[in-house]
Simulated scan of single mutants.
Amino acid sequence: MKIIIADDHAVVRSGFMHLINFQEDMKVIATAADGREAYTLVAKYKPDILLLDLSMPPGESGLITTGRIKEDIPETKIIILTMYAEEEYLFNVLKSGASGYVLKKAPDEELIKAIRTVYEGGTYIDPTMATSLVREFVHHNIASETDPFQTLSKRELEVLPLAAKGYGNKEIAEMLFISVKTVEAHKSKIMEKLHLKNRPELVEYALKKKLLNF
């Protein structure tokens, strides 16, 4: 199995690489320090598995990177590595296209099991999060018809946290490789769909949805 590791801490990348390369059927072919570098390496090498950290400040979050990769390089399966044992993170990650969710505090054998499961076409959720997944799935199905958040497009989900963090239209356009006018259009749509009137309300909404924690 060809694997790429993306994490903003060098010591973490080194530790995971040592563990994985010790397995006879696995090999780490590259490592990345942020989401954009991970995307570039995945596009270049087409690995079987990408182990992706959810939070890599100040770079692109793992959630956004997951969506980009699944749209452009769907053959690469993604396992999220994170310290966040929270339901909303888990659900949003799976919605973005990830095939696995493993907590960094999990035993080594748990990560290896996750890689093999995902490689064979399955989905792997950290055992401690299984109950949360079922609960969140049920809640999501009940709320999806009334929650305007579910109507946001993938691009709007990328623009929303950046706008809430205070980035200007030009900065957001450069980050997402789109035009300033497109950014303005997305922001207008976001405000309309979420029934928000100004930026303070946008920030408050983003905080409530835990979109600023990455």
Rank of each mutant, 00 (worst) to 15 (best):
L81Y: 03
H9S: 05
H139P: 01
E37R: 07
P57C: 10
I49L: 10
K154V: 10
I190C: 03
V28W: 00
Q23T: 03
R199P: 03
G166P: 07
G168E: 14
L81K: 03
L160A: 09
A185T: 14
N198E: 14
I115C: 03
Y205M: 07
T31M: 14
F22T: 10
L81A: 06
T82A: 08
A173D: 12
G121K: 12
E75P: 00
K193V: 10
P58Q: 04
K46P: 02
H140S: 15
D8T: 04
L211D: 01
L207F: 08
E204C: 05
A143P: 01
V28S: 02
M17V: 04
T76Y: 13
S14H: 11
S188F: 09
I4H: 04
T66K: 10
E109K: 10
G35L: 10
S179M: 04
M191Q: 11
N92Q: 15
S61F: 06
G97I: 08
A6S: 13
V118I: 12
L196C: 14
H186P: 02
T117L: 04
L212A: 12
Y84L: 15
E184C: 12
A143V: 11
I29K: 10
I115Q: 09
L196M: 11
L54N: 01
I125H: 01
V102E: 00
Y45R: 05
H186I: 02
L194I: 08
K189S: 15
S132E: 07
A185R: 15
I20M: 02
E174V: 08
A164C: 05
V93P: 02
D8Q: 07
I69Q: 13
E86P: 01
V180K: 08
S144Q: 15
M56K: 04
T40S: 12
M56R: 02
L202Q: 02
A33N: 10
D53T: 06
D7F: 08
S132M: 07
I64P: 01
K105C: 07
T66Y: 05
V93T: 13
V118G: 06
N92T: 12
V102S: 01
F177M: 04
K181T: 11
Y124T: 03
R155I: 13
L81G: 06
I142C: 02
L157Y: 09
D8P: 04
K105I: 11
